[in-house]
C-alpha cells in the first residue's frame, strides 16, 4: 500500500504548495509546520479531496481520480461535519449507504460510540446539544465506524480531555498495528513524537521528512537532551531513560 503525490503544485490567492513529492505507506505519519504553511491543503491533496493544479496522486502506481478509496477524514473542526438530527444517525450515515445489514450497522455504531465514550443517553439527542469535545468525538466516531484503510486527521488532539487524549493514542496505535495508513496534521509535539515519521511544511514546501526525534523540540526531546540520555520524542522511552539515569547515580 503506497500512496504517492508526485510534483504536486497548487496555487491559491493567499498561499501555495510547490512541487511536493512524497510517498506514504502504512503506519503513522505526522505533518507539522507553522500556521498557514499548507498542512491542511496537503492533507486534502493526499485524500484526493482536492486536485493539484499540477502533478498527481497515485495509489500503488495507479492514478487516483477523485476521493481516495477506503479513506476517512476527520477535519480540523469536525463539528462542522455533523449534520444528522441525532448522534446515532450521524454516526451510522456512511454505513447505511454502504448496504450493510441493519444489525451489523447497529453493532458497529454501538461499538465505536462506546469506544469514544459517548453515553447511551446521548445517542438519540441532536449532536448540536453536545459539548465541544463531545461533538468532536461523535464526528470522529462517524469516520472510525467505516474502518478506513487510510485515515486522515486534522489537529485531532484539540479540545480533548485526558481520557479522550489517551484513547486517541490507543486508536493511532491500533491502526498502526493493523498496518493501516494514518496521516495526522498536528501542532501537538507529543502526539507527533509518537509518529513513525514527521513531515515539516514551511511556506508550501517540505522542509524536513524524518524521524520525530530528529526534528521535534517537545518537552520530551528537550528533557532527554538536557539530561544527556538518548534523545527521544517518545514519552515511554523518556521515562525509561530517566529511570536508568537515576539508578546509575546517587541522590544528593
Amino acid at each position: 500500500m503506497e500512496l504517492s503525490l508526485s510534483h504536486a503544485s497548487l496555487k491559491r490567492d493567499t498561499f501555495h504548495l510547490s512541487d511536493i513529492s512524497i510517498s506514504i505507506g502504512a503506519g503513522l505519519t505526522a505533518i507539522t509546520g507553522k500556521s498557514g504553511s499548507g498542512k491542511t491543503t496537503l492533507l486534502s491533496l493526499l485524500a484526493g479531496l482536492i486536485r493539484p493544479d499540477e502533478g498527481k496522486l497515485s495509489l500503488d502506481g495507479k492514478e487516483v481520480e477523485g476521493l481516495l478509496p477506503s479513506c476517512g477524514i476527520i477535519f480540523q473542526h469536525p463539528e462542522r461535519q455533523l449534520f444528522a438530527s441525532t448522534v446515532i444517525e450521524d454516526v451510522s450515515f456512511a454505513l447505511r449507504r454502504s448496504g450493510l445489514d441493519r444489525d451489523e450497522i447497529v453493532s458497529r455504531c454501538e461499538k465505536v460510540l462506546s469506544l469514544m465514550d459517548i453515553g447511551k443517553e446521548k445517542w438519540n439527542e441532536s449532536p448540536f446539544f453536545l459539548s465541544g469535545g463531545e461533538r468532536r468525538r461523535v464526528a470522529a466516531a462517524g469516520v472510525l465506524v467505516t474502518e478506513p484503510s487510510f485515515l486522515f486527521m486534522d489537529e485531532p488532539t484539540v479540545g480533548l480531555d485526558s481520557a479522550s487524549y489517551e484513547r486517541l493514542y490507543g486508536i493511532l496505535d491500533s491502526y498502526r498495528k493493523e498496518s493501516r495508513c494514518v496521516v495526522i496534521v498536528t501542532h501537538d509535539q507529543e502526539i507527533a513524537g509518537f509518529a513513525d515519521r514527521v513531515i515539516v511544511l514551511d511556506d508550501g514546501r517540505i522542509s524536513a521528512d524524518c524521524l520525530p526525534s530528529d526534528i521535534l523540540s517537545s518537552d520530551i526531546v528537550r528533557l532527554s537532551e538536557a539530561l544527556g540520555i538518548e534523545r527521544t520524542s517518545d514519552y515511554n522511552k523518556l521515562v525509561s531513560g530517566i529511570e536508568a539515569f537515576c539508578r546509575g547515580r546517587k541522590w544528593n
Binding site: L227, K250, N252
Partner: peptide, 12 residues
C-alpha cells in the same frame, strides 16, 4: 519542566 530538570540534576 524547569523544576523537574533541576531535581533530576541532583542525581549525580
Amino acid at each position: 519542566t524547569g523544576e523537574l530538570k533541576e531535581v533530576l540534576w541532583n542525581f549525580r
